[in-house]
């Protein structure tokens, strides 16, 4: 009862923030920052399931974002698919690839798993950069219009482009958060969190550890893929950077800063790391130094991440 009410409260607060924030937006630019937070937040929510629930690391999840993004760029051109269907195709492809590579690499633990997933991410971004005749190479590739905004216009809902993407990505983030919160307190979620704490004890009570790790990996790949598709459709252009090593690291950093085990932490981590660089541009040359310093300070003073540490503080350290 207590847990389910905290689930609804989290969703309600998130929905309220998404709805109310635009009233304070001075320009369209802020809608764009909001959309970027939601898109990153979606991928990070997937990583909360993988890293926070199941305790498995991945340094290559931008690879799945790249697959989702390029599916939206390439499938309409080569297969004549509608961008929405291309997004689904990308999701299915990411899930299938995650399932195939997850089987061998999830036997690895810790550093070894980190390096294996890192290799996968680099492989994807290399293929996207090198297959220039198909993907456009490092120069990128354009992505067709989703067309949903025009459709909404015909039924009388007139949104600017920035407003539409803010609302659309916000809905995806809400749905992703809802699913992750459901999972947390379900039989499958408990099995995942159990194998995180003690694999041998989880096996002993009958948890098929291999299958559950793979489920978490596939699920987080689906989140990353959808995030990549949304980014591509929103920008109407995509480069291999979306699948790059730096993006993977950024996603993991957001996960850990927000609080790896916490679903709302995913949004907080994504918001912090998406907004800070924008805010810090006023510092010009010192921007990256201050960003690095803030990240270090958060980890030193809030070792379990933003949301878990702050909520403990609010509850008075019980």
């Amino acid at each position: 009862m207590r847990l389910s009410s905290s689930k609804h409260l989290t969703l309600l607060v998130l929905a309220a923030i998404i709805l109310i924030a635009p009233f304070g937006f001075p320009s369209n630019f802020y809608y764009r920052i909001g959309s970027l937070i939601f898109v990153n937040g979606l991928a990070v929510t997937g990583l909360v399931i993988l890293i926070g629930f199941a305790g498995q690391i991945s340094l290559g999840h931008a690879g799945f974002a790249g697959i989702g993004a390029y599916a939206c760029a390439l499938a309409p051109q080569y297969l004549g698919l509608h961008p929405a269907l291309a997004m689904l195709l990308g999701t299915a492809l990411s899930a299938a690839i995650a399932w195939l590579i997850g089987r061998p690499i999830l036997r690895l633990q810790g550093y070894y798993l980190a390096v294996a997933t890192l290799g996968f991410g680099i492989l994807v971004s290399m293929v996207l950069a090198n297959e220039a005749p198909i993907t456009g190479g490092p120069d990128g590739h354009e992505v067709p219009e989703l067309g949903l905004r025009k459709l909404l216009e015909t039924i009388g809902l007139d949104l600017s482009n920035a407003q539409f993407w803010y609302a659309f990505t916000g809905l995806f983030l809400l749905a992703g958060t809802w699913l992750a919160l459901n999972l947390h307190d379900s039989p499958s979620g408990r099995a995942l969190r159990a194998l995180h704490d003690s694999e041998i004890a989880a096996r002993t009570v009958g948890v098929d550890v291999t299958r559950y790790k793979l489920s978490a990996f596939v699920l987080s790949a689906v989140y990353a893929s959808l995030s990549g598709s949304l980014l591509a459709l929103m920008n109407k252009f995509i480069t291999p950077d979306a699948a790059g090593f730096l993006h993977s690291i950024e996603l993991v950093t957001m996960t850990v800063l927000g609080g790896a085990g916490s679903v709302p932490g995913a949004v907080a981590g994504a918001a912090l790391l998406t907004m800070l660089p924008q805010v810090l541009t006023v510092l010009q040359d010192y921007e990256h130094m201050i960003l690095g310093l803030i990240m270090m300070l958060v980890m030193i003073f809030m070792p379990s991440g933003l949301v878990p540490s702050l909520s403990r503080l609010l509850r008075g350290r019980t």
Binding site: L179, N182, L183, S186, P187, S188, G189, R190, A191, R193, A194, H196, D197, S198, A201, A202, V205, G206, V207, S215, L219, G261
Partner: peptide, 27 residues
């Protein structure tokens, strides 16, 4: 012990086999 879970959740994990969990239904 599953240290980061509650006492009740620790025992609930013990019921894993009777639960016949389905990932989609749980999501």
């Amino acid at each position: 012990i599953f240290q980061k879970m509650t006492v009740l959740e620790n025992v609930m994990v013990g019921c894993h086999l009777q639960e016949r969990a389905s990932l989609l239904a749980d999501l």
